[in-house]
Design a protein around this nucleic acid. Structure first.
Lengths: 327, 327
DNA sequence: CCGCATTATGACAACGTTGTCTCACTCGGG
DNA sequence: CCCGAGTGAGACAACGTTGTCATAATGCGG
């Protein structure tokens, strides 16, 4: 900036005025300054600007499990859309389902003075965020709640959705239903399992623990589990997949199997409608989840001081065929 | 920081020393400082730090078309992985295939003094980046080349891949092959169309312009095009989808059609192998694309001054069935 | 021709850090 | 007991901006 000032023969402050479109700059002077800026390829340093002005940094942080997972990338997109409408940019980070990494990313973003933080928590302890929140950085948890602090949270109806899935399968005659979920350390997985159990109770079928498998989904773990659940003497006739990752691995495992149990997947996913049979899913609006959380965050950023809110978004069953097949 | 200093009864500089683990601080003093930091919930302002040190900001910018598109989110993930290994964070933005937005995002990231910029360009003019590059911000283009400047670029073999797709279909007896691509304004779409034409020539079938449709893929545009191409008196017996978006819409349109032309899709996509018939694709390693571009960027960040490089990653045909079906 | 408002510009401090330099104090050897 | 080296700590400036205030030049009414 001082280079620009020297070249234009003005003070540094006048350059600042031109860059900020402040009035009371003589047109001729402004022209000289603009020319100097062009010639030198000057671009003002936003970091310094934000420091001086003490204003917002114009960024928000988003911590998810994996930006490459279609579920989170859709979330990312929805958040970005709202952020853009508020003139903000998004710093994204993947925790890889590791709570240390989640913490590291969150605190790093705070150190960068993001205007707010959106977190899909990997861990259960969030006391580390208390000082940051007290210092004025609003935090909204999404998809999963905070572990041990009170904070804004946006969730989907995991419990209700899974209950509905069980009901759907029971109405189509199934009584031995298996549940194949992600690691029980993950809130949504645990919650859906709870819904599964509750669904069994409400629909008058026995909850059979031997029909439940909860683990991080990989082709191997899911393949192994499905062989166990639908093989053997008294196999399950239907399976509920706890999320889209489980569903995909499950479908691949079933493709090589002669048995084809009925299937309902929690989470909709692309091409589910084009498979044979089309996959019945518990769908929820991922964009709506991102939008709701981001809107809430920006309300806080703009000074909303009301009590922490907890939003639960509805889910709905999309019957496509895989859950309706005869036994 | 001065609050911490006051509370600990030391100078601001000593707090700085403690925060930065500098030696020559008495353990008792350090302890008092740490206690004050804890009590006040102090976290150092990285923006100010970077400003003062004149060092890197520890961020890189990534501009893609849509972070929600699985293709770009996988790219995003790959870039993030490399960035993390170099201790950097990623600022992401979606251009929405709009060149003004691409420019806006890129320059905004430069103003934030990112250490480097990865761009999937939406536009064809990149002169606006010349001052930034001259000022020392390295830029790498990925998936598509820069319009009118010389810069590092990482592409995939669009031409060769499409030629291979045509050859594959011809070997299976097809002579009337349609090409359904994205908007010809997009480099990859134009390049794949060129490959299609070249493939026709090399395989001795006539290139028939009436079998080509190039447009932004939506359910409507693709549905309309496919009805035109495989309907009528002299229909195409095979279709090449120009990218994964086209393929998905195409599959959905074909699901409601009685004719089932052979199909090869440029870009692999999730569940392609589980459809009926499984979809034959020209696959390329999206992660490798992201990795290669990010590695190149970090080489530049670390001072590599060699001539701009152009990397073209190989693609390979994965025969799954949809391209092998009898006529 | 004076006084006063208005316009255009600049000097200076400050944002929150850290690098450099200086200083006071302690300790051990002569 | 004195001196030099080593240790611990602070004062100050600077990074690139912008807000505040001061000042010089201009215009205009009386």
């Amino acid at each position: 900036m001082s280079d620009v000032a020297r070249l234009a023969g003005v003070s540094i402050k006048t350059v600042s005025r031109v860059v900020n479109d402040e009035p009371a700059v003589h047109p001729d002077t402004a022209e000289r300054v603009v020319a100097a800026i062009e010639q030198l390829g000057f671009r003002r340093n936003l970091g310094a600007r934000n420091l001086r002005r003490g204003s917002t940094t114009g960024t928000i942080g988003l911590v998810v499990e994996d930006v490459g997972n279609p579920f989170y990338s859709e979330l990312n997109r929805a958040v970005e859309r709202i952020a853009t409408s508020f003139g903000r940019h998004v710093l994204t980070g993947s925790s890889g389902e590791n709570s240390d990494r989640e913490r590291e990313l969150s605190l790093e973003f705070c150190a960068r003075r993001v205007d707010g933080l959106l977190i899909v928590p990997a861990g259960l302890q969030h006391g580390y965020l208390v000082p940051e929140m007290r210092a004025g950085t609003p935090v909204v948890f999404l998809d999963r709640p905070a572990g041990d602090i009170v904070a804004d949270t946006v969730l989907v109806d995991n419990l209700g959705g899974t209950i509905e899935a069980v009901g759907h399968l029971v109405r189509h005659g199934h009584r031995r239903i298996a549940f194949l979920g992600d690691s029980p350390d993950i809130f949504t997985a645990a919650e859906r399992l709870r819904g599964f159990r509750e669904g069994c109770v409400r629909n008058g079928i026995s909850y059979d623990e031997s029909l439940v498998a909860m683990q991080t989904p990989t082709p191997e773990t899911v393949g192994h589990a499905v062989r166990k659940l639908i093989g053997g003497p008294n196999p399950a006739t239907a399976v509920i997949a706890g999320n889209n990752r489980v569903a995909v691995h499950l479908l691949r495992a079933l493709a090589h199997s002669e048995r084809r149990p009925a299937l309902v997947s929690f989470d909709d996913f692309e091409l589910a409608d084009l498979l044979d049979p089309p996959v019945t899913v518990i769908a929820h609006d991922v964009s709506a989840l991102g939008h709701a959380a981001a809107e809430l965050l920006f309300a806080r950023i703009q000074g909303d001081q009301s009590a922490p809110r907890k939003v639960v978004l509805p889910v709905h069953l999309v019957a496509r065929g895989s859950g309706e097949a005869a036994l």
